[in-house]
Amino acid sequence: MNEFLLCAAGFILLTVAAGLFRVLRGPGDADRMMAAQLLGTGGIAALLLIASATPVAGVADVALGLALLAAFASVAFVNSVGADDGQAREADGK
């Protein structure tokens, strides 16, 4: 059973890592942020699976912290795109 849990964790990590190709390709910054968000959710899933298969205490609290901060980077990203404090006028050549 433990083997299965670890396989599932590895598979989930693999798929979200494949999703990280979006970080490479973009094209937009939002796509990159989405890939990071996917990694966050997949990372929590993998963490819970690994925790269930290996004897490490307190992993649930780590997952709780990650879940709490899952949207944190996205919030900062959305908040900062086109940040209108007069400094960030980017000339996007998309």
């Binding site: 990280l20 942020m33 990071a36 990372g43 993998a46 490490v56 780590v62 990650l66 980077a73």
Partner: peptide, 15 residues
């Protein structure tokens, strides 16, 4: 964004 993802993965390594 790569660095944010990196930090997440690193916490898995620490586990």
């Amino acid at each position: 964004v790569g660095y944010v993802a990196y930090g997440l993965l690193l916490s898995l390594v620490w586990i």
